[in-house]
């Protein structure tokens, strides 16, 4: 009797597992919601387990910094001088940009506050390229938002729980990011394939990708703000691929961008024509 009971429970559970596999393929929204709840439940434990490792990494980093303190100090001074020059340029360009936008009645990009989340989980293995962060809908995180490490694109939010969110990395098989080649402005789609080096798809006819080309977000589709650095072209035995600029191994924090696609321009109302001063 016990044998048959066990055999029945085994067959039932196998059927449930196969049913779940089919269901998760067909109803991704429900699965996302269930996974978000599970991530919320696991987030405190993952947070607790990841803290000692973070502490150890910080300690190793601090010890390295102590060894290289003088050299680092010199290089930081040089970099500061260089950045001061760039700050002046950036301020001038920002001012100029604002003035020109006001002339054109252009809508500014709707970049809201940035939400920071600590990376607490990295469980995808060879199956999925994704990380879990300890920021969720309570902090304003929502599905589809773009994520950076502060400088470079990491990916986008795929599920958002109350306290945690899962970020699909740009290297994942299911990741598609609209990008452009900085040098030529040619548009394409950056497609992950679970390998460390994603590739460019749908490049226009005649467009040429060269080694070292920087790849930026194009802003098409309205998920990612335009001109965020993503990667650079490298030569591999399989042809030119894109090496992400972000160092996924040292990813401690993820910055989630509360970005809204700029609304379409409203029709220009009848009014006084813009007067342009003659030189």
């Amino acid at each position: 009797m016990r044998f048959w009971g066990q055999r029945f429970s085994l067959l039932l559970l196998i059927a449930v597992a196969i049913g779940l596999l089919i269901f998760s393929r067909t109803d991704t929204d429900t699965v996302d919601r269930v996974e978000a709840v599970a991530h919320d439940a696991g987030a405190p434990f993952l947070d607790m387990l990841s803290r000692p490792i973070d502490g150890l990494q910080s300690l190793i980093g601090s010890l390295r910094s102590l060894v290289d303190l003088q050299a680092e100090n010199e290089s930081l001074k040089e970099e500061m001088q260089r950045l001061r020059g760039w700050e002046a340029v950036a301020r001038r360009l920002d001012h100029e940009n604002q003035v020109l936008r006001s002339f054109l009645n252009a809508k500014t990009e709707g970049l809201g506050p940035v939400i920071a989340g600590r990376v607490i989980g990295d469980a995808g293995g060879p199956y999925v390229r994704a990380v879990l962060v300890n920021a969720g809908s309570q902090q304003g995180v929502a599905k589809g938002q773009a994520v950076t490490d502060g400088r470079y694109v990491i990916g986008q939010v795929i599920t958002a729980g109350r306290l945690s969110a899962r970020i699909l990395l740009i290297t994942d098989l299911n990741s598609r990011v609209p990008v452009m080649i900085e040098r030529s402005g040619d548009r394409a789609i950056l497609a992950g394939d679970n390998s460390p080096l994603p590739s460019l798809k749908f490049l226009p006819v005649g467009a040429e990708l060269q080694e070292g080309d920087r790849i930026l977000t194009s802003g098409d589709g309205g998920v990612f703000p335009a001109r965020l650095p993503v990667g650079e072209a490298v030569i591999t035995p399989d042809g030119l691929k894109i090496r992400p600029l972000v160092d996924f191994a040292r990813l401690e924090y993820a910055l989630i961008l509360d970005y809204h696609f700029p609304e379409l321009r409203e029709p220009v109302e009848e009014g006084p024509a813009l007067e342009v001063a003659a030189p």
Binding site: E35, G42, T159
Partner: peptide, 26 residues
Amino acid sequence: LPYWLAFLVGLWQDMLTGGALGLFAL
């Protein structure tokens, strides 16, 4: 470690991985 417990551990791994739900459970 009854069957249902092995199933639940696998399901937990499925949810953390974020891939096909039911894969590790199976």
